[in-house]
Design a protein around this nucleic acid. Structure first.
Lengths: 165, 165
DNA sequence: CAGTTTATGTCAGCCTTGTTGACTTTCCAA
DNA sequence: TTGGAAAGTCAACAAGGCTGACATAAACTG
């Protein structure tokens, strides 16, 4: 329409529009993590513990190496977090049956309980936002987020998504 | 349709859909920060410096207190970052004219140059994602993000948005 | 004018969570 | 049986959050 070179209206790709999107991501991510952060602050845990708990719950029996790849941190960093979770009885580490080098990770009942608290809080905000925005906006939201991921992370995300529902 | 209580299809509010949205936010945010992070890693700077530079560029002459509120950190934390940026000649701090207690912050030419590099990188990814998803998806993306913010952050975001274009 | 509040900066110390590098143990597979 | 992958550990370090205490200057208020 207004752009003769393509026949499309590309006003949504202006620097100003992109900047607004960038700032929206920044402010929204703060809200996104705020509720779980408040819960975790009361314990000796942080966001790193939340992430580990989330993905162990999501894929019970996952190996340390797999978790490492999903979280994108070093094994030393993850190990510190994992050790405290195991010590505190929230995570169980079982030696692999076929490959005994591997450790398979599971949430204990206490771990599941914490996961529930954290994800309830996070989902509540997400649900409220989804409800306000409506299904069509949510579809767009997901599309843009997927397009924003690094290709290997997109693959991991897709795999998780398909294993889910 | 499928939900007799509301007459709406609320399948987009299922726990599984919400969980996918949560994971999408996690993976997308990683992509969102990856490019600037790579640039910053070569210097002695981190994400905190990027945020300060971004918002000083966005609102030149902003005061320290205002920046504090936008970034949501303590003044000690911000001050550490600001001090290095001023020492390195990327940010200039001017004493307020009407209220001499205030410091007004501006990017120097060097600061503007770095801001440009960082935002170019971040916008490039954003632009690619926007282009793939299309204008309607982008509108939905923005709607959901806005709804996800804390109310006071939403106000700040709106104020920035209106001051922009 | 005296006293209080506000804006800013700074020192010290702490925590989480990331990093690198070096090293060991276990154990699968060629 | 030996090489290499998987896992774990120790040490050291840095960024970037936090709290608490304190200093200074300027503005505001009674």
């Amino acid at each position: 329409m207004s752009d003769p070179s393509t026949g499309e209206n590309l006003l949504f790709l202006t620097d100003e529009q992109l900047r607004q999107g960038i700032e929206a991501m920044f402010f929204a991510y703060r809200g996104f993590t705020a509720d779980p952060d408040r819960i975790l602050a009361d314990m000796a845990y942080g966001r790193a513990h939340h992430r580990a708990i989330h993905f162990i719950n999501r894929a019970p029996g996952t190996t340390v190496t797999n978790l490492l790849a999903i979280l994108g941190v070093t094994k030393q960093s993850l190990n510190r977090v994992l050790r405290t979770l195991i010590e505190d009885g929230l995570v169980e580490s079982r030696v692999g049956r076929t490959d005994k080098r591997e450790r398979h990770l599971y949430l204990t009942d206490a771990g599941k309980a914490l996961e529930q608290r954290l994800s309830d809080a996070q989902r509540a905000r997400m649900r409220a936002a989804y409800r306000v925005a409506g299904p069509q906006a949510v579809a767009g939201f997901r599309q843009v987020l997927e397009a924003m991921m690094d290709p290997d992370m997109r693959r991991r995300y897709q795999a998780l998504k398909e294993s889910g529902a």
